[in-house]
């Protein structure tokens, strides 16, 4: 378990680095050698023949304790302020709905949180440890499923008494 996580993290880190620093160079090199080019966590479609992406999976998927912890972190890091108390959206988009602008895989959601996104999603990678990001991913993925911890309840409209004069 620990090892898998470490691999994931190293993998992610390397991908980021390799792309930021040497994307061009690698591609030329790959083309020359005929080896498949390195791909990060692609947000766009990958042109050409299909390639297996081997994206890292969430070590905490379906771990109920981690989900609850993810819920706590979602409030603690003020995700809830921007994305809604239970992820229904606000300053940032809903995370409850089936729409994923930057990809729906665990790895994509991890990348959205760690790297931030252009229209105002902060990059949390320097502030939130990786294992906590995975827990946040696990919690986000549990929304609208029976596993969702502390799910929102849309209450009946209470009968508010008319205040006296």
């Amino acid at each position: 378990m620990r090892r898998r996580m470490k691999t994931c993290i190293t993998f992610l880190g390397l991908l980021l680095l390799s792309c930021a620093v040497a994307c061009n160079e690698q591609q030329t090199h790959a083309a020359a050698s005929g080896a498949p080019p390195a791909i990060g966590i692609p947000v766009g479609p990958v042109p050409g023949p299909k390639v297996a992406l081997n994206l890292p999976a969430n070590p905490y998927a379906n771990d109920q304790v981690a989900l609850t912890e993810g819920r706590r972190l979602f409030v603690w890091y003020n995700c809830s302020g921007c994305h809604g108390g239970h992820g229904g959206g606000g300053m940032g988009p809903s995370l409850r709905d089936p729409v994923w602008v930057y990809g729906s895989s665990d790895a994509h959601i991890f990348a959205s949180i760690a790297e931030g996104r252009g229209m105002g999603m902060p990059a949390w990678g320097t502030k939130v440890p990786e294992d906590q990001i995975w827990k946040l991913v696990a919690y986000i993925k549990s929304m609208r499923t029976p596993q969702e911890p502390d799910p929102p309840i849309v209450a009946q409209e209470p009968q508010v008494k008319r205040p006296g004069p």
């Binding site: 809830s80 809604g84 108390g85 239970h86 992820g87 229904g88 959206g89 606000g90 940032g92 988009p93 809903s94 409850r96 709905d97 729409v99 609208r144 929102p152 309840i153 849309v154 209450a155 409209e157």
Partner: peptide, 16 residues
């Protein structure tokens, strides 16, 4: 479209 009504706490609590 970016707001889900099934979270009454969304958008600072206005969805309800």
């Amino acid at each position: 479209p970016s707001i889900s009504i099934d979270d009454p706490y969304a958008a600072l609590g206005i969805t309800g």
